[in-house]
């Protein structure tokens, strides 16, 4: 089980620049759907990658679904050599994205994000409109119902305002 509270507070308290995306961002906007991992877009700067590596190291990040014993090394070099990482940690499943389809990287998404205060920390969360756009850009059949729900949330909010 993923401990969203601990993961979000860990990342925020370590001063990591990140944006919540995916299922948890959808839940933050009002989605009722179950998600099993925390998806974030991280800023690819030297300082931020360093902070990310140091903060997660005690929680043993490893490639999710990969057989045990692979020579996977959780380090800044690994992050710079890759872009997106699907990880398992002792706090749960965590997906790190350097870039996302239809959305770009951290700096591209930040203007479309909202500041959330939760669990005593502050963090960025991708705005509803952009979240719908990136999910539609990904074109995954499994997202269709999630997109429909997000659009209904938008309609509901508009109806209220």
């Amino acid at each position: 089980m993923t401990d969203y509270r601990k993961l979000i507070t860990l990342l925020a308290e370590a001063g990591i620049e990140f944006i919540l995306i995916g299922g948890v961002a959808a839940v933050a906007h009002g989605s009722t759907r179950l998600t099993k991992d925390l998806d974030i877009v991280y800023q690819r700067t030297e300082e931020n990658v360093g902070r990310l590596v140091r903060a997660l190291a005690p929680y043993h990040p490893y490639l999710r679904g990969a057989p045990p014993g692979l020579p996977f090394e959780w380090s800044e070099r690994t992050i710079w050599n890759g872009l997106n990482f699907t990880l398992t940690t002792s706090l749960g499943a965590l997906d790190l994205f350097g870039e996302i389809t239809g959305g770009g990287g951290y700096d591209d998404l930040l203007p479309h994000s909202i500041r959330l205060r939760l669990f005593g920390v502050e963090c960025w969360c991708l705005g509803l409109e952009r979240l719908i756009e990136v999910k539609r850009a990904m074109g995954r059949p499994r997202d269709l119902e999630a997109i429909a729900e997000l659009e209904l949330i938008r309609e509901e909010r508009e109806r209220r305002s």
Partner: peptide, 10 residues
């Protein structure tokens, strides 16, 4: 609240 929604998810 957003926090309550994430608590519900957990």
């Amino acid at each position: 609240t957003v926090e309550q929604r994430i608590e519900e998810l957990m």
